[in-house]
């Protein structure tokens, strides 16, 4: 397809783009559209709804076809905040790495959201500093 072309276009656009969201319109409702390579959503709730739920689904229950997107609901693997931080930053197997597309603060926000919703109740919030330390 056109991945190399798009990758180079994206690289240039990244240099240009401010962090303004554009095009919120009536039909698209509350959807947010980033205008560059990086996500403009800032809260954990927004990030989950615009990024994570693409695979892990709006209820975080995951889905299964020829392979599976794991459920993040009531998930004991989230007990240590370092684990979801590592996965969001670096990806794993087919899951893409989001480290280049989110700031430390955004990663921390979405991890904290996940760890306190969908039947998860881990109150020890992670910080942007934790994310910074996790970046290789």
């Amino acid at each position: 397809m056109m991945m190399r072309l798009m990758a180079s276009l994206i690289a240039v656009l990244t240099l240009l783009s401010a962090t303004a969201a554009i095009g919120q319109d009536s039909a698209a409702g509350r959807r947010t559209f980033s205008d560059g390579y990086r996500f403009v959503e800032m809260t954990g709730e927004e990030l989950f709804a615009n990024v994570c739920q693409g695979c892990h689904m709006p209820d975080a229950m995951g889905a299964s076809g020829a392979g599976t997107y794991p459920s993040l609901a009531a998930n004991k693997n989230l007990e240590s905040g370092a684990y979801p931080i590592f996965l969001v930053v670096n990806g794993r197997r087919g899951m893409p790495a989001f480290g280049d597309m989110m700031t430390d603060g955004q990663v921390a926000a979405v991890v904290n959201y996940l760890r306190t919703h969908f039947g998860n109740d881990f109150q020890d919030a992670v910080t942007a500093k934790d994310v910074q330390d996790a970046r290789r």
């Binding site: 397809m1 990758a7 959807r31 559209f33 560059g36 615009n50 990024v51 739920q53 693409g54």
Partner: peptide, 13 residues
Amino acid sequence: LFEGANAYEFTAM
């Protein structure tokens, strides 16, 4: 859409 933030955002809809 191919890669980049918008591809994920459209997937999530």
